[in-house]
Design a protein around this nucleic acid. Structure first.
Lengths: 111, 111
DNA sequence: CTGCATCCCATGTGATACTG
DNA sequence: CAGTATCACATGGGATGCAG
């Protein structure tokens, strides 16, 4: 439809919409937050810190965030398998903006 | 379920999750942006500036944002009806954080 | 002009089981 | 340990028509 077309254009053109899409979703912020606090985490360490997430959602969202350039995945060819995740520089650059948003949210909650 | 419980707790406790919920959704940012640029707009003016939105979505989202404290609705008891919308101070306070996010998004798009 | 009600569909998310 | 596959469901969003 025409509507979808204009929406797609928005997503491609508007930096804010782009940013929102990158951090939207139930699990993206918890993942960013966990990796921000811990620098590097293995798959199962991450899973244990994010309460309620399933393997399906975790692996899916991690893959999307890697493609988006937010996190980096480092795989070691060992038995048993070891995979470590951490934030890219861009992912780290995002945090101050999120903290600003959080301050605003805190203010709204206390109103 | 237990999961929903913990999710609800997150929404209530985490200021960032709270803020994200307030600005998430297909039409919230376009509305904020339109009111930021124009200060005050009537219902139909707003609708004309937000390409593709239906009456149903516009009125629904406006009501939610009013309850959230982002916008203020001013109704004039005239015939034909006139209703004007504008950002609250809190709504305006949100904009700098959004602009920071937008700068980050622009950087990511150019990478 | 400024909305609301009904019905419908797409997408995101989840439960469960399985694999290299 | 680090995932994938399948099936199912809840939620957000939309088309259409009606209303004060």
């Amino acid at each position: 439809m025409l509507q979808e077309e204009s929406q797609k254009r928005d997503i491609q053109n508007c930096p804010l919409t782009y940013a929102m899409n990158v951090i939207s979703g139930k699990w993206r912020l918890p993942i960013i937050w966990a990796l921000w606090k811990n620098d590097t985490l293995r798959y199962n360490e991450l899973k244990r810190r994010i309460d309620g997430i399933t393997n399906m959602m975790l692996s899916q969202v991690l893959k999307e965030m890697e493609i988006a350039g937010l996190i980096v995945r480092k795989q070691y060819l060992e038995i048993p398998p070891r995979v470590e995740y951490s934030l890219t520089q861009e992912g780290k650059d995002l945090v101050p903006s999120l903290e600003a948003l959080a301050r605003w949210g805190k203010h709204m909650q206390n109103r």
